[in-house]
């Protein structure tokens, strides 16, 4: 059973604010969803077969020439919510007080 406290904590971890009404709705829905996916807890997988992984492959890439410097700078910085020249401008997080 999920509690509103748990859901609130998850929301904080996920950097989301959930309003009071929505918190109760989400908690109730969580219970239904977790009850459904909870069938996995009871799933009895064949001995020794549970940890099987699909065949894994290493994908390596040779070091090559990087793209030309500044080729994408303007395009990317156009998307910045706030910029100073080509730099992304964010709030100061370290103060000297």
């Amino acid at each position: 059973m999920a509690t509103t406290e748990e859901v609130k904590k998850l929301a904080a971890l996920a950097r989301i604010t959930v309003g009071k009404a929505e918190l109760e709705k989400f908690t109730a829905e969580f219970d239904a969803i977790l009850a459904y996916v909870g069938q996995l807890e009871k799933l009895d997988l064949p001995q020794g077969k549970g940890g099987e992984k699909p065949a894994l492959r290493n994908v390596m890439r040779a070091d090559g020439e990087p793209h030309t410097a500044l080729a994408y700078t303007e395009k990317l910085s156009e998307q910045f919510p706030s910029r100073e020249g080509d730099a992304l401008s964010v709030k100061q997080i370290i103060t000297h007080d």
Binding site: V37, E41, G50
Partner: peptide, 13 residues
């Protein structure tokens, strides 16, 4: 363990 790893194991089976 109860959810994600179990789901991943079921996926392999």
């Amino acid at each position: 363990d109860a959810y994600y790893r179990k789901a991943d194991a079921a996926r392999a089976v």
